[in-house]
Write a protein that binds this DNA or RNA. Structure first.
Lengths: 198, 198, 198, 198
DNA sequence: GATGAATGAGTTTTCATTCAT
DNA sequence: AATGAATGAAAACTCATTCAT
């Protein structure tokens, strides 16, 4: 029965998992806590043992995925020994992979992100800022090392890069049949061309 | 008095204008019709003389701005006599300008778009598809004419391009002090590098 | 055009006529003044030149038809020189005829009557009471004159009679194909059997 | 306290009971759910745990009482070993008794019935049709067995009978001091005279 | 007199959250 | 800890009525 389905996960994780699916499918405002509880095989009230509010579930999911993104980028920035341009591409590749592995959460984030990008919610703002700072760090470093085109302005290049990857993911998430390798290959071409010195 | 404030605009336009501001500031779900009416200096019921539902106000705003975008791109694609790469850049430039002139609406669209991108709402879907088709047309043409790098895959390049510009706009919209010329200049550099043949 | 259709009627009568149709079709609560005005080919506000409220239109229609009923019964009671049993039957016959000639109003009255049978609305209460008193008068007279079964108790016989005729009308009003002569003939049989001395 | 008042009834029954009173007193359209809830000593939202809409409460009450009527008549028609004329009278008697025991619901049904006699609401239409069919069956049988006057036409006699009884009930319901025995006795006299062979 | 755009009071219904069990 | 019945605040929307033209 439903209650057994996720027995190996903690109840908290279970709620997050189910919520990401429901939010992705219906959007935050049309998702009902009672429905999430039913799908999770638990009581409505039980949800409130693990989360203070419905909003908090969403916020935690956002932080979760952005933290994963930040971690990937941090690893690329600090621990990989490749050219700066390759680092930029590697970041793009890892974000695309991450999203393709967690399509529901990715879809949800894409849907709800702008709405919930609340400057007062520090944990999220901080993580996103970290992501941007790391990307900026990579690019600035590349420019210093003559690996990245010095006409690139990191302040604007970072949002362009994030937005480009973001929508590539949106496309991937919405398209049932897509070729992940091609998507990544294309990201490589665009990023490389855009950033390298010709 | 408030009632006179916008007397030169038709009431319908007034409602759209006020709604775009309120939606941008608070998001659709947290915007109340009564509040919009009050800000517009009209009665709550009056809003319903001009729009069937609150959703319809949002939808009309979305269609309005996407139509403007589509028109700009159509003009570039069909009537401008410049190279394909320049066309791509010119599209980006015009979208950025459009958004910078209608910051509130742009912010609102960015915020609500993913949520309301409802395939059943034909007028919007059609306009967006038109935008994408025109961009794709420009790129495919450029490849055929050896003006655009033939490793570019229009299927994925279009969402990347849209996403990049989109988030550049988001950045612009969120940043009180930004240099519009720099933003556009940067878009030119990235787009040109990414698409041209080196 | 619609405005010409009823040009021979005074506007007040026109509103009453159209209202009776709309009320009959949709019920009072689902009838909109704006709809009545449109069907009457006049402006919404114009209705309020002739009637204070929507309720008043209904009340006037009720009074109108009940007055017609009362008048018929008064004529039978006072001016016809037939047996008491025949008088009772004649009352039934005339009410049935009246309803069959004004089906819409009859339908409306049947639908709204119980709801609006407001003891505080004197003009209606008075007319209905008059109808009942006249019927009672006929029956009591008949008993005194040994024309009507003395086991009949006018207090209860009158509502039974009214109710019987009423629902016969309801049946007539709801049945597209009915035989008016048969309906009246049947009323005669039932009434005669019920009231005469055997 | 109010909450305890009806503790022995299930909450669903409680809502029906209170609703029948409020509907009877004010009519359906002037009855507010919040008022029903308050009188029932429960929260407004609680009503919606038991009924989908306000209309559904009314419809259920209607079905409830008409089912009771149909059951009484069915018993008379099928299980009682009396003459056909007595059966007709017995039906009348039982309906009058039923209404006198549930005056509020009866009053409400009388008030709202015509308005809600919606052919699309099958459960109600079906039950009413059953009632009519059973009465017709009794009368047709009586005619065949030479117990009921063969000039009686069941098609029209049934609505007359129902209407007569109906308004007798209305009279009973509206009159604080009435003599139930006299009412029933009078129904017997009228029905017997009207239907028997003289 | 005639109009119909404007009004805003008013009610059903929803659902996040609570809390007695 | 777990539950789910109960809550009640909140908002979209309607429409009788008004009144400036």
């Amino acid at each position: 029965m439903a209650k057994q389905k996720y027995i190996d996960k903690s109840k908290r994780e279970l709620i997050l998992l189910v919520s990401s699916k429901v939010f992705a499918k219906q959007g935050f405002h049309d998702s009902k806590i009672s429905q999430i509880a039913k799908l999770a095989g638990i009581g409505t009230g039980t949800v409130y043992l693990y989360f203070e509010t419905k909003e908090n579930i969403l916020k935690e999911l956002m932080v979760q995925i952005w933290t994963a993104v930040a971690n990937e980028i941090e690893f690329v920035a600090k621990d990989m020994n490749i050219s700066s341009v390759d680092k930029v591409y590697e970041c793009a590749r890892r974000i695309i992979l991450l999203a393709s592995h967690r399509k529901e959460t990715a879809k949800m984030v894409l849907q709800e992100f702008a709405y919930w990008n609340d400057p007062d919610f520090a944990p999220l703002t901080r993580t996103i800022q970290k992501t941007k700072d790391l990307l900026r760090f990579i690019i600035e470093n590349g420019i210093e090392n003559n690996e990245i085109n010095n006409r690139i302005n990191p302040e604007y290049a970072v949002p362009f890069l994030i937005g480009g990857v973001w929508h590539l993911i949106e496309y991937v998430v919405q398209t049932p049949k897509y070729n992940l390798e091609n998507v990544i290959e294309q990201a490589k071409i665009i990023v490389t061309n855009a950033f390298q010195i010709h």
